[in-house]
C-alpha cells in the first residue's frame, strides 16, 4: 500500500516538473533528485515505469525521439489531461499525520514551479488539520481521562504541524525565489 502511494506521488511530481516543458527521462530524474530526492533518489527503472504508466493513461505524450539506442531517446511532454491531473492532486490536502511534511513540501514546490497558488495549498492543509483538531476536541470533551490523553497527544502534534504551516506561509516568497533554478528555465522549449 505505501508503495502505491509513493508511486502516485512520484507520478504527480514528474508531471509537475514536465509542466515547465518537455524533458527526457534522465533529465526528469536529475531534476526530481535535486529537489525532492535528498535521502532517496529515484532509480531509472522507477522513472521509466512511471513515465510509461503516465503515457498509458494519456497524461504524457512522446514529444520527440532522438536517433540512437537506449531507453532515454524519448522526450516526454505533459498533455491537457496531465495538467488537469496535477491541478486535482494539488487540491487534495494531505492526510494529517506524521508524514505530512514531505508530501506537503512537494505540493508547495510544484505549485510554486507551475505558477499556482501555494497559499491555497497551505490554507487547504490548514483547514484539514483544523477539522481533525475539532473532531478530536469534541471527542475529548465527551470522553474519560484516557480519551483526553490520547486526544491531547494527537492535538499537540497537529498544533505543531499548524505552526509549521504558519511559518511556511510567511516564508513563501523566499521559497519561491529559492526554487527558481536555471535548470527549470533551460527545459522550456
Amino acid at each position: 500500500m505505501p508503495c502505491i502511494v509513493l508511486r502516485m506521488s512520484i507520478g504527480h511530481t514528474l508531471l509537475g516538473l514536465l509542466e515547465a516543458g518537455p524533458r527526457h527521462g534522465y533529465d526528469l530524474k536529475r531534476s526530481y533528485d535535486e529537489r525532492f530526492g535528498h535521502d532517496r533518489p529515484l532509480h531509472y527503472g522507477q522513472v521509466y515505469a512511471t513515465l510509461s504508466r503516465l503515457l498509458k493513461n494519456g497524461l504524457v505524450e512522446v514529444d520527440g525521439v532522438t536517433p540512437g539506442d537506449g531507453p532515454d531517446r524519448k522526450r516526454y511532454a505533459i498533455t491537457e489531461a496531465g495538467v488537469t491531473d496535477v491541478e486535482h492532486w494539488l487540491t487534495q490536502p494531505e492526510r494529517p499525520d506524521l508524514y505530512l511534511h514531505s508530501g506537503l513540501y512537494t505540493k508547495l514546490v510544484v505549485a510554486l514551479l507551475t505558477g499556482r497558488s501555494a497559499t491555497d495549498v497551505l490554507d487547504r492543509q490548514r483547514a484539514e488539520h483544523l477539522t481533525a483538531m475539532r473532531t478530536l476536541t469534541r471527542r475529548k470533551t465527551g470522553g474519560d481521562l484516557a480519551d483526553q490523553l490520547v486526544c491531547d497527544h494527537a492535538l499537540f502534534h497537529l498544533e505543531a504541524d499548524l505552526r509549521f504551516l504558519e511559518l511556511t506561509a510567511a516564508r513563501l516568497d523566499a521559497l519561491r525565489n529559492a526554487i527558481r533554478s536555471p535548470q527549470a528555465e533551460e527545459a522550456r522549449p
Partner: peptide, 21 residues
C-alpha cells in the same frame, strides 16, 4: 489552534482581510 478547535468554524484574518477555510 487548540483553543480554536473548540469552535464550529475558523476564519483566518490576514493583513486585514478575512479568508474562510
Amino acid at each position: 489552534a487548540r483553543v480554536a478547535a473548540y469552535s464550529d468554524r475558523e476564519v483566518v484574518v490576514r493583513d486585514g482581510r478575512t479568508r474562510s477555510l
